[in-house]
Computed example of a mutant assay.
Amino acid sequence: MIFPSLRDFLTNGRGLLAKGPIALILLEDQIEVDSSLRHAIKAGFHRVVAVGAPRIAVDADLADHVVRVHHDMQADNALEDIVNGVIAAAPGQWIHYAYNAEYLFFPFCETRTVGEMVAFSTEERRYSLLTFVVDLYADDLDAHPTAVSLSDAYLDKSGYYALARKDKDDTLLERQLDFFGGLRWRHEEHVPPPRRRIDRVALFRAQPGLQLRGDHTFSDPEYNTYACPWHNSLTASLCSFRTAKALRRNPGSAPHIKTFKWHNSAPFHWRSQQLLDLGLMEPGQWF
């Protein structure tokens, strides 16, 4: 099913959002569009919605499994307009948002579905899931000029850290941290400070009045916390080529980067256990 605009989808497609969990895959370019959509389908999302320009193609065999919504991802506030529009249209549903060439991994995702995970989180009265954006990059940039290769993907196995998050009055925020690492840390001279964080609440339960902000935080402070008050909470990883793509595409950074590999690079095995072992997500009380 194809909707010619975001407004048309939010007006006439609400019935498609009546059951979750829902995945919003935001298409910025043609790179790994189909693999991103297939990954979301395999994860167990009840509804997968691909939002992007009409020129971005989606494999014909995905037509019965994906809802297409035409929208300019380069428009101002595109992220907020899409996510907040779906929040308003699908109250009570769990929603995941990611870009193409990003892949959600959660503990035991090889044997459990995302629906099982959000059911557990709901039972714990936890309505948001903190995810860490783990940068992926190709080993050989000559062979893969866009820095994207599923079969030759690497990640950083160390170099991650967190700082206390403060509000505008310099007051510490309870159970909130700013997380850093990966390519945005190693090549921070090419990344504006507001875009250096790697934390993103990429899976959450919609509720009336909830708003996503441009810095990937929510209007409800509890949604931005890394754990509930009484114990550690489940977290996940969003394995992403997006930063590597941008650094290779940006004329200010591309000439200065011959490789993304360093002594702490490791092949990515596309398995949740590797991310658990590296401390890039944790199961909390979910066993």
Rank of each mutant, 00 (worst) to 15 (best):
I2T: 13
L6W: 00
T11K: 13
N12L: 11
K19D: 08
G20M: 13
L24Y: 08
L24E: 05
E28R: 14
Q30M: 04
I31G: 00
V33C: 05
H39W: 15
A40H: 00
I41T: 04
I41A: 03
A43M: 08
G44F: 06
F45D: 02
A50Q: 03
P54C: 07
R55S: 12
R55C: 01
R55K: 13
V58R: 08
D59K: 11
L62Y: 01
D64C: 00
H65T: 06
V66F: 05
V66H: 01
V67D: 02
R68N: 03
R68W: 01
V69I: 06
H70L: 02
H71W: 10
M73R: 13
M73G: 01
Q74C: 04
A75R: 14
A75E: 12
N77D: 15
A78I: 03
V83A: 01
N84V: 04
P91F: 03
Q93H: 04
W94R: 01
W94L: 09
W94Q: 08
W94M: 02
I95L: 15
H96P: 01
E102N: 02
E102T: 07
L104M: 09
F105Y: 15
F108H: 14
E110G: 15
R112S: 07
G115N: 11
G115M: 08
V118H: 03
T122C: 03
T122Q: 14
E123P: 00
R125L: 09
R126C: 12
L130I: 04
L130R: 05
D135H: 00
D135F: 02
D139C: 12
A143R: 15
A143D: 09
A143H: 10
H144F: 13
V148H: 04
L150Y: 01
S151Q: 09
A162G: 06
K168T: 11
E174F: 13
L177F: 12
L177M: 15
G182H: 06
L183N: 06
W185I: 00
W185M: 06
H187W: 15
E188P: 00
P192S: 13
R195Y: 12
R196F: 02
R196S: 05
R200Q: 08
R205D: 10
R205L: 10
G209W: 08
R213C: 09
D215T: 07
F218S: 01
D220E: 13
P221S: 06
E222V: 14
E222S: 11
N224P: 09
S233P: 11
S233Q: 09
T235Q: 08
A236E: 10
L238H: 04
L238G: 07
C239D: 07
F241V: 04
R242K: 14
T243H: 03
T243I: 08
A244G: 14
A244W: 07
L247R: 06
L247W: 09
L247F: 10
R248D: 01
R249F: 11
P251M: 11
G252D: 12
P255G: 10
P255T: 10
I257C: 08
I257L: 11
K258D: 14
K261V: 10
W262F: 11
H263Q: 15
H263L: 14
S265E: 10
S265D: 09
W270S: 00
S272T: 11
S272D: 15
Q274E: 13
L278Y: 14
L278T: 11
L280C: 07
M281G: 01
P283W: 02
Q285E: 15
Q285C: 10
W286A: 10
F287W: 08
